[in-house]
């Protein structure tokens, strides 16, 4: 019986300490604000004085979650407080963004925004608009490419699109669920090559698209570039074109669609925002902290190791970009006949 109690005690201690470690992995890194070198000027409000909440709308452990937590941890260091991360998932992010936008605008709730906020808004399935937030920064960009199986007969984007024109709606194009970012990119590609039509085969996510490309269950696929290098190097998948303004460092020899005469550049992104109406001074502190964290060489190194395509836009540039991108999202969804 004595033994039993001992064992139970050990188990309890372990459980408790890990519950603590798990819930509060950030407090351990806290610097008390007084010691932190980044204390704002004396006139600024005392912010932050307690841990802040970050709402991540994608599930724990996924790409967006890892990216947000990594950026958040470094920003928290600059702020001298910690982020308590909450994954509020579901409805393509709408549930979490709804909760974030309706949180008090005091700077203690930060939302992780991704491209899908634009899609949700254009689809009209949720009342939340990107304008319901005050933007802080954009920190990554995820360019996509057009990929084909290694032994595909199509050697160039021209050949692929010519085939899609010749036999409309027969070439199978792997994307994520219809209406989403990948499908929009493919739709723009169709529009740029007059009369080309794909047959879309939607998959749950990138992993499934890679499997379908390697197993030749699709004729082509739209896919983010990150993580594709070794499939391309290995010869099981080939990349025909990059759908971005510039060539990618990952595939320097692959042309962009624009170089090939197709006017398509479709960029997905991740960033941070706070509920609309957050005081300007508070926003300035956040913007400053996130910028400093972004410039931290240690963060840059970690992000590179994690395969993130870093790209910085400050609050104003971020807003300009979204204002430009949103009408395009609406246009392509109209073209794909999701909205009227």
């Amino acid at each position: 019986m004595k033994n039993l109690k001992k064992i139970l005690a050990i188990i309890l201690i372990c459980l408790l300490s890990f519950a603590l470690a798990a819930c509060g992995s950030q407090p351990a890194q806290n610097n008390p604000p007084a010691q932190s070198g980044t204390q704002p000027a004396a006139s600024a409000p005392a912010y932050p004085t307690k841990p802040m909440e970050m709402i991540i709308v994608w599930s724990a452990g996924g790409g967006s979650d890892l990216a947000a937590r990594l950026m958040g941890d470094y920003a928290a260091k600059e702020l001298g407080q910690s982020f308590v991360y909450q994954n509020v998932t579901g409805a393509n992010g709408a549930i979490g963004w709804d909760q974030a936008a309706n949180s008090p605008a005091d700077g203690y709730t930060v939302a992780n925004l991704t491209f899908d906020v634009l899609t949700n808004q254009a689809m009209g399935q949720t009342p939340i608009k990107y304008d319901d937030f005050d933007l802080i920064m954009q920190f990554t960009t995820q360019p996509v490419g057009v990929f084909v199986p290694g032994d595909s007969p199509y050697q160039t984007l021209d050949e692929l699109l010519a085939a899609a024109k010749e036999k409309p709606e027969t070439l199978q194009m792997g994307t994520t669920p219809l209406g989403g970012f990948f499908h929009q990119a493919a739709g723009l590609l169709e529009a740029s090559a007059d009369g080309a039509k794909f047959k879309y085969l939607p998959f749950k996510g990138s992993a499934e698209i890679i499997a379908a490309l390697s197993g030749k269950h699709v004729d082509a696929g739209i896919q983010t570039l990150t993580g594709m290098e070794q499939h391309v190097e290995n010869g099981s998948i080939r990349v025909l074109a990059i759908l971005a303004e510039e060539r990618s460092q990952l595939f320097p020899n692959t042309p962009t669609a624009k170089e090939l005469g197709y006017d398509v550049a479709w960029e997905s992104w991740r960033g941070f925002a706070v509920p609309k109406g957050t005081p300007e001074e508070v926003r300035a502190i956040l913007e400053d902290a996130f910028k400093k964290a972004y410039d931290n060489p240690e963060f840059q190194q970690k992000a590179k190791e994690a395969g993130l395509d870093l790209y910085y836009r400050g609050a104003a540039d971020f807003k300009t970009m979204l204002d430009e991108q949103y009408p395009n999202v609406e246009a392509v969804l109209k073209q794909l006949e999701f909205i009227k």
Binding site: G61, L66, L70, G227, Q230, E233, N234, E305, A306, G307
Partner: peptide, 17 residues
Amino acid sequence: AVLLGAMMIQGIQPGPL
């Protein structure tokens, strides 16, 4: 899926290579 993310953070890219 989570392990994959953890490996990539460590600079190990699982895959054919």
